[in-house]
């Protein structure tokens, strides 16, 4: 049966269920226990935002605080994965990936291929992504395109708690390294989530809104902004389809192409910077594979090519808004009218 559960607690529940099911699942990260070895409570924090709270009490030594040493513990998680464990390592903010990128893209991502298919690296690296937290330039980035670029990595970016639980369980059971991106501004968002365990296969986009006139392809927080834009446009008589990619690698190209072939218009919405982004990837793929279906030039809505600003006034305009998205949709339609 189902009940309302937050995005954050869906992460916690998926970890708990999989640790209970499989003794090789271990967790590590900075302050995921949050108090280890200190005079007060052992699990004072349960993660910097409390995502892993309670798991230490339940699973003990399988939940490990690490030194502030991303290179060592992310590498250790990968090494343990290559030796039969299923570690879930928390890289607190994806911005910290610079400190351990070698372990992720030169080691974990390449073992299977480079070792002739004879190595498995079932590691999950969880990281918070996204702006809007007043966390400034080094704690707010949307680095999904960087990890999506790397063959051998799977990249997951859920937009709601139902998908979080099913995709995180799949990530843990998957035999490839997975970068599991959690949008910190969605942690409080709640939807119905079954109590039971379930796994959502990778590479299957969701369509939270069907429509006839234009296709928005997006993921993460932008799914919600896009749905807001679609509601607004519906009141003006424009019927927009919204595709939530859910996983960026693998990518559900079939669903994107089928939708654009139906609507003839594409708006790719991405919270990442515009250059070499998920938005540009989608736009290029559609232009290459569904050019004849397009009734107007595809539009990209992205963050600007600038670091994430601190000042709230600036950060709020840095993140694409529903209004901007709606404007981009209209642009695809006005173009058509001009052309006609």
């Amino acid at each position: 049966m189902a009940r309302k559960l937050s995005y954050k607690m869906a992460v916690n529940e998926a970890l708990d269920l999989e640790m209970t099911r499989d003794p090789t699942v271990i967790l590590m990260g900075e302050d995921i226990v949050g108090g280890a070895g200190s005079p007060g409570e052992d699990d004072a924090w349960g993660g910097v935002l409390g995502v892993t709270k309670g798991l230490f009490a339940k699973h003990g030594a399988r939940v490990m605080d690490t030194p502030l040493s991303e290179s060592a513990y992310i590498g250790a998680a990968i090494g343990a994965a290559a030796c039969g464990m299923r570690p879930v390592a928390e890289l607190m903010f994806i911005d910290f990936i610079g400190c351990c990128f070698d372990e992720i893209f030169n080691q974990a991502a390449k073992f299977r291929y480079m070792f002739g298919g004879k190595a498995e690296t079932p590691v999950v690296i969880r990281a918070m992504i996204g702006a809007g937290y007043r966390a400034a330039a080094q704690h707010s980035q949307m680095l999904t395109p960087i990890v999506t670029h790397i063959p051998g990595l799977k990249v997951v970016c859920p937009s709601n708690a139902y998908d979080v639980k099913g995709l995180l369980i799949q990530s843990i059971r998957d035999n490839d390294p997975v970068i599991f991106c959690e949008h910190k501004n969605l942690y409080a968002h709640e939807v119905d989530v079954p109590l039971e365990s379930y796994a959502i296969p990778f590479g299957e986009a969701a369509i939270p809104r069907e429509g006839r006139d234009a296709t928005i392809v997006t993921y993460g927080l932008m799914v919600h902004r896009s749905l807001e834009a679609a509601e607004k446009l519906a009141r003006e008589g424009v019927d927009v389809e919204v595709i939530d990619l859910r996983t960026l690698s693998p990518m559900d190209w079939d669903t994107v192409i089928e939708s654009v072939e139906k609507t003839g218009r594409l708006i790719a919405v991405d919270e990442a910077h515009p250059r070499c982004s998920i938005a540009s990837d989608i736009t290029a793929f559609v232009a290459q594979h569904a050019f004849r279906a397009l009734k107007s030039a595809p539009q990209m809505v992205t963050a600007p090519h600038s670091p994430v600003p601190f000042s709230p006034t600036l950060e709020d305009i840095y993140i694409p808004s529903a209004e901007t998205i709606a404007g981009a949709v209209k642009k695809t339609i006005i173009q058509k009218m001009v052309a006609a």
């Binding site: 990968i78 090494g79 080691q107």
Partner: peptide, 26 residues
């Protein structure tokens, strides 16, 4: 590499074996 022999790979990145072996030890 030959994981069946406990050989986790030669490595083109200098020093990269050190974090990996921590995982093996863990």
């Amino acid at each position: 590499a030959d994981l069946s022999k406990g050989m986790m790979g030669a490595n083109g990145i200098l020093g990269a074996g050190a974090p990996l072996i921590c995982g093996a030890g863990l």
